[in-house]
Design a protein around this nucleic acid. Structure first.
Lengths: 112, 112
DNA sequence: ACGATATACCTCGCCTGTCAAGGTATAAAT
DNA sequence: ATTTATACCTTGACAGGCGAGGTATATCGT
């Protein structure tokens, strides 16, 4: 991705939850959706993605189940839980705050 | 601070550079300025601040010098270098991109 | 006089999220 | 048959934030 790792850090789980809020999905698909939504500028490394799933599931934010055996490789689907939706709402609020704080601190309009 | 550590990560140096772009300053003062600008919502832990200074200086983004002995504790002042200004400009561009990408991905307007 | 508080700087070592590298397996395309 | 795309997973290294601890000077209240 073109975004540096440290900048994405801390947003990984939020992005995953936001994707799952639109319906159950699986790793590969989520990653492609993120890529597409950002014109290829963002995207998770696989290790990052799967470790994030594991954390989210351990914390009760998502649940998982194996998809029906269709053709192709098996897929593990993830679903957001009520706790996950609450977390997502909190994360969204935090993002709004972060955005305004960093706008103030980084001060894009040059000079002072 | 209310910003989580992971979210701050990757922005620490940018914030410091942005502060120094307005004139030479020293650790404590920079931290107070950050606090004030954000109504107390943000602020660095000292360990974070001083390790960031060290990194920035090692990478040629800032230089440092001891302040004249006035009353009170000695101060180490920092000044942004030309390379630091370039980095700051790049960081500001990156922040703008990050902001729009995360807006798209986190999608604050609920729902899908 | 003495402790507390504010200013001001610094270091060590832990913790946690990212990710390079490596691995497995299925199906379609060349 | 080999390559490519899909799809999942683990291990270990790395780097930045920061808790905890330390040093030193000046002021303020009692």
């Amino acid at each position: 991705m073109s975004l540096s790792a440290d900048i994405l850090r801390g947003h990984t789980e939020t992005i995953i939850l936001a994707q799952l809020a639109g319906g159950d999905s699986y790793g590969y698909e989520i990653n492609k959706a993120v890529s597409q939504r950002t014109g290829g500028a963002a995207g998770f490394k696989e290790a990052t993605l799967y470790t994030a799933f594991k954390r989210l599931e351990q914390n009760g934010m998502i649940t998982s189940y194996w998809g029906e055996d269709g053709p192709g490789a098996r897929r593990r689907y993830y679903a957001i839980t009520p706790a996950g939706r609450e977390q997502l709402a909190a994360d969204r609020r935090e993002w709004e705050q972060t955005r305004s704080l960093l706008d103030a601190l980084i001060d894009t309009k040059e000079g002072r």
